[in-house]
Nucleic acid binder design. Structure first.
Length: 222
DNA sequence: GCGACAG
DNA sequence: ATCTTGTCGC
């Protein structure tokens, strides 16, 4: 698929924050996603503690969850890890990987936050805006506060930043820790929740994320 | 002001 | 993110 990078790469934390403030206005946190045929999972694996990394994208059939396309590319993180600016570590390699895809997925499922971010512009929003493809963030740990949801698959509670609802703590399987779902771009929170549940019929994390994770690890081992 | 803080 | 032992369950 083709990705339109519409901005210069920031060279400092201040520039990166300013870019997030600028791009956040392009985010559309609504939409119901009719006719989703394929879903992409995006993940990055790191070589030990270094900045060498592998970006992996796994595209699955939305119905059967079987693989239909994938891309795995090596890269290097140029930004230090700073919560809030996390996207700038993984973005370049993930964009490379997306560009090597033979197809254009109908939905992006990103390992990290979307709107649930100090400036409402997490990695999932950034990728959604750059691609114009609907995106959602599924994080393993929250950036905001939440009360534990009920114990059953499908139970959820709001994820809060102050008094603002920025996402949901969602139980994807009975008795497992919740995942943290937030809107990336061109979808509403109900739809995002519904998609994550559909993509996680058996395990805590969506099948898209798991597939991408496996691809990345396998590439690191070589 | 201080602490907490996606991967 | 990544590093680990043991343990539980299909």
């Amino acid at each position: 698929m083709r990705v339109r990078v519409t901005h210069d790469w920031p060279c400092s934390a201040a520039e990166a924050e300013a870019l997030q403030e600028r791009l956040r206005s392009r985010v559309r946190a609504s939409g119901e996603l009719t006719g989703v045929r394929t879903v992409a999972g995006l993940d990055v694996a790191y070589a030990d503690g270094s900045d060498d990394l592998v970006a992996a994208v796994a595209v699955l059939d939305a119905e059967t969850l079987s693989p239909v396309d994938s891309a795995v590319v090596p890269g290097t993180a140029t930004f230090p890890y700073v919560p809030g600016l996390f996207a700038f570590r993984e973005l370049p390699a993930l964009v490379d990987a997306l560009e090597r895809l033979a197809t254009t997925p109908d939905l992006l499922v990103v390992d990290g936050q979307g709107i649930a971010h100090p400036r409402r512009f997490g990695l999932a929003c950034h990728l959604g805006v750059l691609t114009g493809v609907p995106s959602i963030g599924v994080a393993k740990t929250p950036l905001g506060r939440y009360e534990p949801p009920g114990p059953r698959r499908g139970d959820w509670t709001p994820l809060l930043d102050g008094d603002e609802v920025v996402g949901r703590a969602l139980r994807t399987q009975d008795g497992v820790r919740p995942v943290f779902v937030s809107v990336g771009h061109l979808v509403d929170l109900d739809t995002a929740t519904e998609q994550v549940l559909r993509l996680a019929p058996r395990y805590r994390l969506p099948e898209t994320t798991r597939q991408a994770d496996h691809l990345g690890r396998a590439a690191l081992a070589r």
